[in-house]
């Protein structure tokens, strides 16, 4: 296979990986601090994208500029979900959290369908006509913005967690909740903040995804969310670097592996299309990792 084609496919994988990473980090943060899993995290991505669409279509300004506003709105929604959904059922069992998020999925998906109908919505990016030549391939500017934005977000996130008081409190809470509470950290406030931050990251992922030429409809959230779960399971629960690496691996693998298999079986004169196997490959990786290493590639023992 031509090397430039391979590189182009690699870039598509990188782009998909960026979205998974943003989503997975938010999910991971919430899990780390609260030890709850929000299965409806993908729905936050979907609502975030809708809010951006709504702000954009009612104001008509550059869509990249409305992303911070929709991120803020989603952070507030995240706080509400935490306060009235997950906080009251804390400690009543993991199954209850799964059921609650199932209810949230039904609630959010159908509310979006009611508010914005089920027709797919798009945002016309102002830069959609600009192609940046990189060697033999040409990349639309929007992708480069997304990749750079993701890297910047990761660096900012890392600095926030390491340098600020709140970030330190979050890390302390995720290491040992009781001890953190004894040290005078208001753990409930930390819960709320981490949920807000997680929702905000989901909104960023959803908005960037929409602006880069994707569509949003009420059902787009589930698949990226499932991939994000796979990412944090593969990377190890609570491990941010694990999530980054696993996100990249998953994004690239699901794009590259089908093409490789296809060219491999072509050697034996079998013409078969494996591109529809993208999602199945994600689950296969997940299942294999869980069988071999139940705590994930970078997970701590006994988590």
């Amino acid at each position: 296979m031509d090397i430039s084609i391979f590189i182009q496919i690699l870039v598509w994988g990188l782009y998909a990986g960026c979205i998974y990473i943003l989503l997975a980090i938010g999910l991971n943060l919430i899990f780390g601090v609260m030890k709850v899993v929000n299965f409806a995290h993908g729905e936050l991505l979907m609502i975030g994208a809708y809010v951006t669409f709504w702000l954009y279509s009612s104001s008509g300004i550059n869509p990249y500029l409305v992303v911070p506003i929709s991120t803020f709105i989603m952070a507030i929604l995240g706080i509400l979900i935490e306060r009235f959904g997950f906080r009251p059922i804390r400690g009543t069992g993991k199954l209850n959290e799964i059921f609650l998020s199932l209810g949230l999925i039904y609630l959010l998906q159908n509310s979006a369908a009611l508010l914005w109908t089920t027709n797919s919505r798009t945002i016309h990016s102002p830069y959609s006509d600009i192609l940046v030549p990189l060697g033999t391939i040409k990349l639309p500017l929007d992708y480069i913005i997304i990749i750079i934005a993701t890297i910047l977000f990761l660096i900012a996130f890392q600095l926030f967690m390491k340098k600020t008081t709140i970030g330190r409190a979050m890390r302390a809470t995720s290491q040992n909740r009781e001890a953190a509470a004894l040290m005078g950290i208001n753990v409930e406030r930390i819960d709320m903040l981490s949920f807000a931050l997680g929702s905000a990251l989901a909104a960023v992922a959803g908005s960037l995804w929409l602006i880069s030429g994707q569509m949003v409809n009420p059902y787009v959230g589930s698949l990226p969310a499932i991939k994000a779960f796979a990412v944090i399971i593969i990377g190890g629960l609570g491990s941010i670097p694990g999530a980054i690496i696993a996100g990249l691996i998953l994004g690239i693998a699901e794009n590259v592996v089908p093409v490789i298999i296809q060219s491999l079986v072509a050697v034996f004169n079998v013409e078969m299309s494996f591109t529809a196997w993208k999602d199945t490959i994600a689950f296969l990786i997940l299942i294999i990792v869980l069988i071999l290493r139940p705590t994930g590639l970078f997970g701590k023992k006994g988590e």
């Binding site: 496919i9 994988g13 782009y15 787009v220 529809a276």
Partner: peptide
Amino acid sequence: KFKMSETDFRTVLTT
């Protein structure tokens, strides 16, 4: 082939 309601066709279109 692609899966129903797929949104990312870049790889398959590249092939």
